[in-house]
Design a protein around this nucleic acid. Structure first.
Lengths: 336, 336
DNA sequence: ATGTTCTGTCGAACCGATTCCGCGAACCGA
DNA sequence: TCGGTTCGCGGAATCGGTTCGACAGAACAT
């Protein structure tokens, strides 16, 4: 069922079929219709491999995700979904590569086998060999999150530093003087994971600027982690009246621990943070938070398409600072 | 950086390079080493499109997921992850196709453009045109979940009917006489979504068999849905003392509603169900539940590889019935 | 010395598309 | 009637691999 078969049945040459399909040269209306009839009848569609070979592009985007063993967070999942959706809208397919290490077979296959026209890299580290590798090969790429040296690359990221700082300012405006940051897991912080690092930076600066006392805690990225972290907080820092957090997965545990300890939100404790909308809305009471834009994947695809079209244009960045939605989890500092 | 370049630098013909790489013909040890040296130096890797064109296979699997707009459940996400992981283990890539409708462009591209060697279909409906389409084309495929006429196809599924029946029997053994089924959303049930349908069947039969009174409720697949559903249950069926559910996403809401109403689990209400392990373990108290095997994706990949290797072998099924893990959410019926 | 087998390599065809070059027919104005 | 332009189409090269058949030279048997 190849183009030759179509050509034979329509009584034309293969090139004519190709031109009729692509419209890159004029084909008389009646031949075009004859060809189209045969194509419809046989349900012909050009072979992707042959086309990719000749054209030098695959109409496929690579999406490098964290290895499957790690459970993806809702936020990450949201990225994947929006990338796939955005790609589908412009008729591109998405090839998945679960790659953690640096010389991952799947990553190499995709990159050096020219299986894709461009790559979107999720969950990058501050120093990331995959970025260097991609720069070597010259394959267009966009990262979600950015490295320590983000000048030469194209990326889209959430401005965690600013967002957490805004949370701190908001809480300080309400009179809170002792604020805790509930960060991501200790491993991630130790590994130099960008969002965790930048949240800490933003927190520290804002706290200093407002002359507050701040404590920062690492917290495993799940409900039990949140519970444990809140226990620790109550134990070691009883004077804290407000929490800022970027650890959405810990929220259910935090909530549970608060309820058990009979700490009312926001009467006894205020909480603000950065989280995917549904985490914030599921919290009781609904969480005052900057909703992490799920359309980040769309932006990444847009940037990548630009980059594929004009590889020599200076790389563009996108640092998103979504507004903080005031819900009901923050209030004035308790009068004791 | 193609095979010709390697051949020239190594002073051999292109075919010799190919044979040295594939080992399909003997190449003298010294030429092999010379070729390998050049390959290492230039970091050469064969072009995937050219290879796919000649070999007639792409070394890629297609994974058809629900459209991105619908938030994937944790269970579905687990499938995706385990499929990707299993594929990576055998050096296959995974192409994603977010396809809901029947004549989805992305689906058609993958299927008729011969972009993949086989397809894994998630979230199929009882009547699913995509299955018919795949049967037409002759492309090997495996479904996760099965249609109304599952004889001719290859699938892997969870035996929701049996699992829910077991939950009912377990609860009946504990003395419960009034049991509620909290099913998936009304839309899914109406659409003939297999798991929801089979859960209902298993529930109805088991309830009848044990002579119990059973009520079944649909419930939106999220925390607010669970809350609402439990309110409804308390309101309309106050004599229910036990719940069976397959709606893992509603669990947090169910828990919240129970806590607010001061209904202790399992003292006042027993709950059992089918859920991904982490939902069950996050529940307070930990949920007695059949843990949906995350390795379902692995099984799907295995079946698909078999099918690709021997397309004419009779299709195999896999109906998984994981054991119910007794945790602490079920107990004897309350004495009033 | 001659025929046979075995080794290692090469040349060329092929997979299925795209695209450049050029050819014949129709058409036009002079 | 002739030269030039336009239109529609066919032929052939090409992308980068794989694989089949052939073939030179060495090794071996007769």
């Amino acid at each position: 069922m190849n183009i030759g078969e179509i050509a034979r049945r329509a009584g034309v040459s293969r090139s004519t079929v190709s031109y009729a399909l692509s419209g890159k040269r004029v084909v008389s209306e009646q031949t075009r219709q004859r060809i189209q009839a045969v194509i419809d009848e046989l349900d012909y569609r050009p072979n992707a491999a042959a086309r990719a070979l000749k054209e030098g592009r695959t109409r496929t985007l690579g999406l490098v995700i964290p290895p499957a063993s790690l459970r993806l967070t809702d936020m990450q999942l949201g990225f994947v979904a929006s990338v796939v959706e955005a790609a589908a809208r412009v008729d591109l397919d998405v090839l998945l590569s679960p790659s953690g290490g640096d010389h991952d077979r799947s990553f190499e296959r995709i990159v050096s086998g020219r299986r894709v026209d461009g790559v979107i890299l999720m969950e990058i580290r501050l120093e990331d060999e995959r970025v260097t590798r991609l720069q070597q090969t010259g394959l267009p790429f966009v990262t979600i999150g950015h490295t320590a040296h983000p000048q030469g690359t194209c990326w889209v990221d959430v401005d965690y530093a600013t967002l957490i700082a805004r949370c701190v300012h908001h809480l300080a405006d309400l009179g809170h003087r002792h604020i805790a940051l509930i960060n991501r897991s200790a491993e991630l912080v130790a590994a130099g994971y960008g969002p965790a690092q930048r949240a800490l930076t933003g927190f520290t600066e804002a706290v200093a600027q407002r002359g507050l006392t701040g404590v920062d805690l690492c917290c495993a990225d799940d409900a039990p982690g949140g519970e444990a972290c809140l226990e620790q907080l109550r134990d070691q820092h009883p004077d804290v009246t407000a929490i800022a957090t970027i650890n959405e997965a810990a929220l259910p545990g935090i909530q549970r621990a608060l309820e058990r300890a009979n700490i009312a939100v926001p009467r006894d404790m205020s909480i603000a943070g950065v989280a995917a909308r549904h985490w914030a809305e599921d919290f009781r009471p609904p969480l005052t938070a900057a909703d992490v834009p799920t359309e980040m994947g769309n932006h990444a695809v847009d940037l990548l398409l630009e980059r594929i079209a004009t590889p020599d244009a200076p790389p563009r960045h996108l640092l998103l600072t979504p507004p903080i939605s005031l819900r009901s989890s923050t209030g004035p500092v308790p009068t004791r």
